[in-house]
Simulated scan of single mutants.
Amino acid sequence: MAINDDAIACVRRIFNVPNNYKVMFMAGGGTGQFAAVPLNLSAEGKSADYCVSGTWSEKAFKEAKKFGNSNCVFSVNKFTTIPGESTWSRDKDASYLYYCDNETIHGVEFPFIPSNEGDFANVPVVADMSSNLGTRIFDVNRFGVIYATVQKNLGPAGCTIVIAREDLLGRPRSFCPSVLDYSQTSKANSLMNTPVTYSVYMTKLVMEWIEDNGGLSQMENDSKAKSQLLYDVIDSSDGFYSSVVDKMFRSRVNVVFRLKDGDEQLEAAFISAAKKNNLLSLKGHRSVGGIRASIYNAISLKMVEKLAQFMRDFQKSN
């Protein structure tokens, strides 16, 4: 219980969580939250708006359809960009607007928080920050609910951090399972059932490490520097390497790229040569192929410098 209290206090300090927000640790990962969000926030007879910018928001959108009406606010042929907000098809009476802040598979990251002003002042913004929570500063007050699985930047797999505004709690759908009910979880201080103790404890230690190493501002500076190293190599390679994502929306934590317009044999050679240089897990997701460098908080600038130099050397020899 003491570890749990300390971990919750860490979340509040690091992310500057206001007093009118509840902090919870839940199980079930992001997939569990795909269901938990509509089960807790969708009102009978109302629709929910979804930004579908990649695989994970697409999965969340499909899951939400099981529990009520859901509206896709924009559609793109390929997950390489985010259309301007003025083109989105939003509902001012929607239960909430949902988006995935960073799409790990396609390497697309939101550089802005969707609007919750004007016609949409009463529409809570819900963000899946599973892959970039802990890598930059943001204003919690702009959101109704934020959730993040911890295994990318904050700890070992197991627990999911949920930050939810108090006024949104207490109105779950009648068929919402207790284990996914935000209000019950909050009342029990995340101890409604036996928690994923080890994951919570390790997450607490990692958050303390973040505090001891410059806080979110330093994590943000490091994230920008690491990703820029790789994008500089890509952009200066005269087409040998290419990013498929529009520059404005390139992810800082998942650098996705192709070699010579998707030459799969060359990409296989790249991955094999990288492995011999102890540069691992660079193969793109099986659904999209290519190369993906995931540079979460645990990956140091020195490690990324090694990858950048390898990329330059590989280009010269090929």
Results as ranks from 00 to 15, higher is better:
residue 288 V to A: 11
residue 220 E to C: 01
residue 282 L to V: 03
residue 281 S to G: 07
residue 289 G to V: 02
residue 278 N to Q: 14
residue 300 S to K: 07
residue 285 H to I: 02
residue 234 I to Y: 00
residue 267 E to N: 03
residue 268 A to Q: 14
residue 222 D to R: 06
residue 238 D to V: 02
residue 280 L to K: 12
residue 283 K to D: 04
residue 290 G to I: 05
residue 237 S to H: 00
residue 288 V to I: 15
residue 222 D to F: 06
residue 243 S to N: 04
residue 219 M to E: 08
residue 247 K to D: 10
residue 297 N to S: 10
residue 283 K to L: 03
residue 235 D to L: 08
residue 296 Y to V: 00
residue 269 A to S: 15
residue 231 Y to W: 00
residue 253 V to K: 00
residue 233 V to R: 01
residue 265 Q to I: 15
residue 283 K to Q: 14
residue 290 G to L: 05
residue 225 A to W: 11
residue 295 I to Y: 01
residue 232 D to Q: 13
residue 282 L to T: 05
residue 250 R to A: 01
residue 250 R to G: 09
residue 237 S to C: 07
residue 261 D to N: 11
residue 229 L to H: 01
residue 279 L to K: 06
residue 299 I to W: 03
residue 248 M to S: 14
residue 264 E to I: 14
residue 285 H to E: 12
residue 260 K to A: 01
residue 255 V to N: 11
residue 272 S to N: 10
residue 231 Y to M: 05
residue 258 R to W: 06
residue 216 L to Y: 09
residue 297 N to D: 04
residue 286 R to D: 13
residue 242 S to V: 08
residue 270 F to D: 07
residue 215 G to D: 10
residue 224 K to A: 11
residue 229 L to C: 09
residue 228 Q to W: 03
residue 256 V to H: 03
residue 260 K to Q: 11
residue 246 D to E: 12
residue 281 S to N: 14
residue 288 V to M: 06
residue 294 S to V: 09
residue 304 V to L: 08
residue 299 I to V: 15
residue 219 M to C: 05
residue 216 L to T: 05
residue 216 L to H: 01
residue 226 K to Y: 11
residue 279 L to D: 09
residue 217 S to A: 14
residue 264 E to V: 14
residue 283 K to P: 09
residue 304 V to I: 08
residue 244 V to W: 13
residue 283 K to T: 05
residue 255 V to L: 00
residue 258 R to M: 04
residue 299 I to H: 02
residue 233 V to Q: 02
residue 275 K to C: 04
residue 287 S to T: 14
residue 305 E to L: 03
residue 268 A to N: 14
residue 269 A to D: 15
residue 255 V to Y: 07
residue 262 G to N: 03
residue 225 A to G: 06
residue 266 L to P: 07
residue 273 A to I: 05
residue 227 S to I: 13
residue 238 D to Q: 12
residue 267 E to P: 05
residue 246 D to K: 08
residue 290 G to P: 12
residue 263 D to L: 07
residue 239 G to V: 06
residue 224 K to D: 13
residue 245 V to S: 06
residue 234 I to D: 00
residue 293 A to M: 05
residue 296 Y to K: 10
residue 224 K to N: 12
residue 270 F to K: 06
residue 284 G to R: 10
residue 257 F to A: 09
residue 278 N to D: 15
residue 309 Q to M: 05
residue 233 V to D: 04
residue 230 L to D: 03
residue 248 M to C: 12
residue 253 V to H: 10
residue 237 S to I: 12
residue 270 F to H: 02
residue 237 S to P: 00
residue 269 A to T: 14
residue 294 S to W: 08
residue 255 V to S: 02
